[in-house]
Simulated scan of single mutants.
Amino acid sequence: MNTYNGMPARELTDVQWRKSRRSNSTGNCVELAELPDGSIAVRNSRYPDGPALIYTREEMRALVLGVKDGEFDSLLV
């Protein structure tokens, strides 16, 4: 599979999209999928055919650890 940042998410076949249990009932969710090469795709659940952002595992690890450390809490105020 040839993946690129911003590709239509519908072109990512044979992937399992997952969203947080904390997602709200109005469908405002971010979904993630592991790709065959180990990278992670991200899409907006309201636009499942829209663009997918592709990140390396290292980039996702940095994001998750930053979230856990509270580095982005000021964005939620």
Rank of each mutant, 00 (worst) to 15 (best):
R57C: 00
V15D: 03
E59Q: 15
T13I: 11
P36E: 06
S23G: 07
N28C: 11
L75F: 08
I40M: 05
V15M: 06
T26Y: 15
S20D: 10
T26I: 15
T13F: 00
L53F: 10
A33Q: 04
P51N: 00
T3D: 02
F72S: 02
D69T: 15
L53N: 00
N5I: 08
P36V: 01
P36Y: 03
S39A: 06
F72G: 04
W17A: 09
E59K: 13
A52D: 01
T56K: 01
K19I: 08
A33D: 04
L53M: 11
D69S: 13
R46N: 09
T56S: 03
Q16R: 13
V64N: 04
L75P: 08
N24L: 10
S20C: 06
P48G: 11
L63P: 07
R22F: 13
D73R: 14
L12S: 07
R22D: 06
N28R: 13
V42T: 08
R43W: 05
E34L: 10
V67F: 08
R18T: 02
R46W: 06
E59C: 10
G50Q: 01
E11V: 13
G27T: 15
A52T: 02
L75M: 13
E58T: 10
L76N: 15
L63Y: 15
G70V: 11
R57W: 09
D49A: 04
V15W: 01
Y47I: 00
S74N: 12
G66I: 06
G6I: 08
L32F: 03
L32P: 03
E31Q: 15
V64E: 09
T56N: 00
A9R: 01
E11A: 12
V64D: 00
A52S: 01
T13W: 00
Y4K: 10
K68H: 09
L65S: 11
Y4I: 01
G66V: 05
D73A: 14
M1L: 12
L75K: 08
D49H: 11
Y47Q: 13
F72A: 02
R10N: 11
T56D: 04
A33C: 12
D69M: 12
G38C: 07
E58Q: 15
P48R: 09
Y4H: 14
L76G: 00
A41R: 02
L75D: 12
E31G: 08
D49G: 13
L12R: 03
G66D: 10
R46I: 09
Y47P: 00
R46S: 05
A41S: 03
L65V: 14
E31K: 12
F72N: 01
R43H: 07
R22M: 12
V42D: 04
P51D: 06
A33E: 03
L53Y: 05
L63C: 11
C29F: 02
D14F: 07
M7C: 08
S39R: 08
S39E: 00
R10F: 09
M1K: 14
L75Y: 06
S74Y: 11
V77D: 14
R43D: 02
R18C: 01
P36T: 06
P48T: 10
V30S: 06
Y55P: 03
V15L: 08
G38D: 09
N5W: 04
V15T: 03
N44Y: 13
G66P: 11
V64L: 13
